[in-house]
């Protein structure tokens, strides 16, 4: 028996327990410190994402094959029905095509007359990327894509599938980038109804159907309306398709996301420079020259 009153095995047991509880204590501290921010160990996350994107990209190949087999089987099964439906759709669209073409020309002419540019801010250049892993777990909804700084991808760029908006870039590594999906708990996107132009905020809730918040009841919102990005705040381009409105059991408005229609494999990343606030977009030497300060702008406008 030692001076402490404990024998060898008892001492070992106590020491093991204290190590275990110390590690648990450290984990709780980390958990509380990282609450909702997800900013701790940022460089570690980038390195891990770069490594993971390569390894998972390789091991996910058979799974992607299985998924496409499943989709193919479904497509083949419905091929006849879809063919008939598409033929009817083509007939209908042929009539609309001429009207659209005529309207486009008229709008262009009006824009030239008024000297305005009302087209979408969506650039023509886009980068194609592969989603190497999708995390649609209970805590986060994010995805890892296999391009990053090597393709000049920056935080904030919007990511699209063939169906609609997928999310936006929140982190970029050298060869990978992390996308925050529309339905993640931390996702907030300003949206509008394509029909009524009513504005709202699309709030992710980790389910398949994110909710619409800050909806003005004065504006007409209908079930089945197409929801697109409004471009408010200048963070995302306007006009990106998101989904359609549906009502849940409680009568609250939700959005059925377009991108969930099919498994996501390839995506497009659209470069987009957020529109800066005027006070942040002044030239660096504005103050030195003394001609483009906010005060001067007001003064010149008054003059």
């Amino acid at each position: 028996m030692s001076k402490s009153g404990y024998n060898g095995p008892q001492r070992r047991r106590i020491s093991r327990r204290s190590i275990a509880f110390t590690l648990i204590f450290i984990s709780i501290v980390v958990l509380l410190a990282d609450r909702q921010q997800r900013s701790m160990l940022a460089s570690g996350r980038l390195t891990t994402d770069n490594i993971s994107s390569k390894i998972i990209g390789f091991i996910a190949t058979p799974i992607r094959g299985l998924e496409s087999l499943f989709v193919e089987a479904g497509n083949r099964k419905n091929a006849y029905k879809e063919n008939v439906k598409l033929k009817a759709e083509i007939e209908r669209l042929k009539n609309i095509e001429n009207t659209v073409f005529d309207l486009q020309l008229r709008i262009k002419r009006f824009e030239e007359m008024l000297d305005i540019e009302s087209s979408s801010y969506l650039p023509e250049t886009k980068f194609i990327a592969r989603t190497v892993s999708e995390s649609k777990g209970p805590f986060v909804h994010s995805a890892l894509i296999d391009i990053g700084i090597n393709k000049d991808i920056k935080v904030g760029y919007s990511v699209m599938t063939t169906e609609g908006l997928y999310g936006h870039i929140i982190q970029t590594g050298s060869v990978s980038a992390r996308v925050l999906l529309l339905n993640d708990l931390n996702s907030r996107i300003s949206v509008m109804s394509q029909r009524s132009r009513g504005r709202a905020i699309l709030v992710g809730n980790n389910t398949k159907s994110p909710k619409l918040s800050y909806v003005s009841n004065e504006i007409d919102w209908r079930e089945g309306d197409r929801v697109i990005t409004s471009g408010d705040g200048g963070v995302l381009p306007s006009g990106l398709p998101i989904g359609t409105i549906s009502l849940n059991k409680n009568g609250n408005r939700e959005v059925d996301l377009f991108y969930l229609k099919e498994p996501v494999d390839w995506v497009w990343v659209y470069p987009f420079t957020p529109i800066p606030a005027p006070e942040n977009s002044l030239p660096e030497n504005a103050n030195a020259q003394g001609d483009v300060t906010p005060d001067n702008i007001v003064q010149k406008a008054t003059e």
Partner: peptide
């Protein structure tokens, strides 16, 4: 880190 979860959940 790899699953982009808040740190500590799986550790604990």
């Amino acid at each position: 880190i790899a699953s982009a979860n808040p740190l500590g959940i799986w550790t604990l």
